[in-house]
Amino acid sequence: MAFKLILGAWLSIILIVGFSFPITTNPTNWYDLPFVPGLEDKARILFFHVPMAWVTTLAFIISLIYGIKYLTKKNLDYDIISSSSAGLGMMFCVLATVTGSLWAKFTWGSFWNWDPRETSIFVLLLIYGAYFALRSAIDGDEKKATLSAVYAIIAGITVPFFIFIMPRIVEGLHPNEAIVSQGKISMNKTMLVIFLSSLAAFTGLFFWILNLKVRAARLESKYYLKGE
């Protein structure tokens, strides 16, 4: 319980600090955030959009790991964790896409520009959309679990490629320099602390929701077993 209350307060503080700390061209006070050319006040999206994308990656990797575990142990509980994690990953992926798209409207002038990052996240959404289509099309728990575990592994392998590699191979509009410029972190200390705290808080939030989702799915499967 304490963990949850701390998480709630922690994310609230990040929200307040992330929105209210001033962005200045010459940060002198401890609470000043640096001015990123071309981003101005819109740089604040960094504290929310990037953690969402990070949680998406984490969720899909967890789905892959539990997919492998299911195939080796044939325990249906692993399938529950794998599919719940993929579902949450999909939710955070949609949130990252929507926040990024809103930001793009105000920075690039249009909601969708087919930038390499936008294209890669779109392909990811399609890949995991197909995962849920596959799950809903198969009857029988074990067959469904086996096929979706195989699919989760194949889909999970593509995640690092689409999120980390592809946008770096092809040149695009996405401002990566706000975080890392020429191999060095370009944020000041305050910005870095808020950013890392936000990453940790979103990760905590993800594990909390995953825990709830897995427990609900376990109860559901127990209920059906009792019913039979």
Partner: peptide, 10 residues
């Protein structure tokens, strides 16, 4: 505007 957005998100 920034503080209004912050309040709504909060």
């Amino acid at each position: 505007a920034l503080y209004i957005v912050m309040s709504i998100v909060l």
